[in-house]
Design a protein around this nucleic acid. Structure first.
Lengths: 212, 212
DNA sequence: TAAAAAATACGCAAATCTACGTAGCTGCTT
DNA sequence: AAGCAGCTACGTAGATTTGCGTATTTTTTA
């Protein structure tokens, strides 16, 4: 009999996480090695208990989200297999995960069978992406999805957050110790970069990116 | 030996739902009678399979969310016990559920033990609310939480939606066939009613209320 | 290292928003 | 019928946003 596939699970919602554990324990050939409520706990667990074969990462997590965790894991543990799970079908999430070398990508509305398939494939060194992944990537990337946060400068991010919180240019200038006119420039550049309409569009973007 | 508690589960994410099933099946005295991906499926299942003892409703669901389902169930099935589950710790959600007679209220980061406790208590006719519930309700309701949508007029809602989408007063006036000044008035009344700062605050409110 | 690109900062004018008021009209309740 | 709430409309004045330029500094790239 072969050794079981050692799995580590990260999801911030305890009930959901325990649910995953319960599901996985019903899959033969799989062994849940550890659980974590966020990315940091995953790294801690690796240091304490040694490496897992496959890591199941929920994307939406506090402290350290799925993408950040994926990057760290791939960097520190050569050959580690990671499957990213998410509830949100958003191009930016998918793209980020795939760029960082996620071995699998699934949505939370997939079946237990698909999860099982993904785990064994990924374990064998293959990739497994849910069908919706290709669909989402096929969609022409709009600036607001594509440019996303990475294309914004530090300063622009500062300004964006404050704008989205309802501060005026004058107030923001005072907080950042820059001229209100400079704040205007940043705001305008943001509006252009993100291809949105006015302050309202910026607030929408900020909220969707969970900046506020 | 007593009859098992018949439970119905509703959650739109298949993997999460299956996880709940797996968890519940490990709890003695409990029997999962049916699953549903949304509120409508719950009502269908009741009609097809008869009533469950306890219904576990995820709040966030498409087609018919937890609150709407709760209302329907309480209306059509006297004495039915319902536990509402959610990921979001938001006063409006909690308040709505309790007002509509939810017998239990839990967050998705509770433990399996607490879930088990809640189910058996609720089955016996008692109420079970997670500790955070009281905390959230204790927080003084701000206008933006309290006044919420109900205190806004139809026209104000129209204007709010358009403002949040980034249209200017002039554009909105053209769309609604009213003077831009009138749009200004509505916008200003909204800002006052909701006690928010400017357009940014309105957009935030609109998004949180899922108006856009 | 020089050229190019990006980030940062500021000016100006027109459009817009914001915060005050005022006021006629409609539909509903008392 | 009077009272009330909501919708509509307008005015003024100051603050703010927005669109369009320009310039300096920093970073990236060739």
């Amino acid at each position: 009999m072969e050794a079981k596939i050692k799995i580590m699970i990260a999801d911030d919602h305890q009930l959901v996480r325990k649910g995953f554990v319960a599901i996985l324990e019903q899959i033969p050939g799989v062994q849940v090695m550890a659980e974590a409520a966020n990315g940091r706990e995953v790294l801690d667990a690796f240091r304490r208990l040694g490496r897992a074969d496959v890591v199941l990462l929920d994307y939406e997590m506090p402290l350290m989200n799925g993408l950040e965790t994926l990057i760290q894991l791939k960097q520190e543990y050569f050959g580690i297999k990671v499957i990213v799970l998410t509830m949100l079908n958003e191009r930016s999430i998918i793209q980020g995960a795939l760029e960082q070398g996620a071995d699998g990508f699934l949505f939370k509305n997939t079946s237990v069978e698909e999860l099982s398939t993904a785990i064994s494939k990924v374990y064998k060194g293959e990739k497994y992406y849910a069908g919706e992944v290709a669909l989402s990537l096929a969609k022409a990337p709009t600036a607001s999805n594509d440019a996303s946060l990475t294309s914004l400068s530090e300063r622009e991010l500062d300004v964006l957050k404050l704008v989205a919180q309802g501060f005026s240019s004058t107030e923001i200038g005072a907080q950042l110790f820059i001229s209100p006119r400079t704040v205007d420039t940043h705001r305008n550049n943001l509006i252009q970069k993100l291809e949105v309409k006015g302050i309202a569009g910026l607030v929408q973007f900020a909220i969707r990116q969970k900046l506020i």
